[in-house]
Design a protein around this nucleic acid. Sequence first.
DNA 1: TCAATGTAGGACCTAAACAGTCGGATTTGC
DNA 2: GCAAATCCGACTGTTTAGGTCCTACATTGA
Lengths: 159, 159
Amino acid sequence: MLKLTKKADYGLIAMRHLTTVYPRSASAKDISDHYGLPAPVLAKILQTLVRGGFLASEHGANGGYRLSRGPELITAFDIVRTIDGPIFLTSCFTENGDCEHHKKCSIRDPLRRIHEGIISLLNKMTMSELAADADPVSGNSPIGMVSSANLTILNRQQL
Amino acid sequence: MLKLTKKADYGLIAMRHLTTVYPRSASAKDISDHYGLPAPVLAKILQTLVRGGFLASEHGANGGYRLSRGPELITAFDIVRTIDGPIFLTSCFTENGDCEHHKKCSIRDPLRRIHEGIISLLNKMTMSELAADADPVSGNSPIGMVSSANLTILNRQQL
DNA sequence: TCAATGTAGGACCTAAACAGTCGGATTTGC
DNA sequence: GCAAATCCGACTGTTTAGGTCCTACATTGA
């Protein structure tokens, strides 16, 4: 279906949130409460991003996650790729080569151009841009009026 | 994982083949033999493309499938969308709107730009272009030296 | 020192989608 | 009439996404 996984969605939402508070940190619970995301899932995603080198974690009380570098140095491609693994437009190409058979499987080369175009698009979108037209997170969150419980239900159905 | 399904791959391969023989037709078996694709699966894909209006079918002996219009009027987006269904970059948007909750889910607008970029890329790739740098199918197919059985095995593992 | 709060990480379960198979009906050319 | 082809629906197995649960470890504040 050519779409991002929910995990990648969650990861982007979390990264955007961390961008808005940068260079401060936020806990997984803060973020999951704020957007109505399932907390354990988000926690795992954040841990993955730590391993990927895009986040730094702070243990203990008042701990949380923080961007490991400036938001202009992290792209949507970084996040999606870290969470979802390598992106293939078609199964015909892997990261380090092509499928061996079908020397003339014929659609490979044209699709490769599209494939590279998509990666380029994702690579141009930095966290700074992702957060650009977003409200600062402080104070009057527009989501504050909806109960967390309702959000969770909506998530299950629609997100 | 942001990739096309095998069915979409198969569909594109078949459409490219039919482009190279256009305006003649080819049977599902011709195509599946030629590329080592599973015949019943391919048949179903072709039927889907008929319903989508991109192929015309000819019943009976010597029947087969034929492009219903010029290859420059059919795009990769048409095919992928017909086979795999609507393309969403993120679950947040459906074809006719956005997810209702998260009025400020915040990553929607930036991702929408990427989403539209991807569709635009796919929409610019016509069947003519897809087939442009391909060998004509006649006579000395470069795949002729590999047995069909081997191809099938390779397909299972790698395609 | 102890409890609260946080990250870290593995095992496990469920539902959905993908990929493919099978059987049968219909149409057409010889 | 027979063979070759499209057509159509139902069915199955496998993978993966999505989510839950449990435990261990680290840090902070009282």
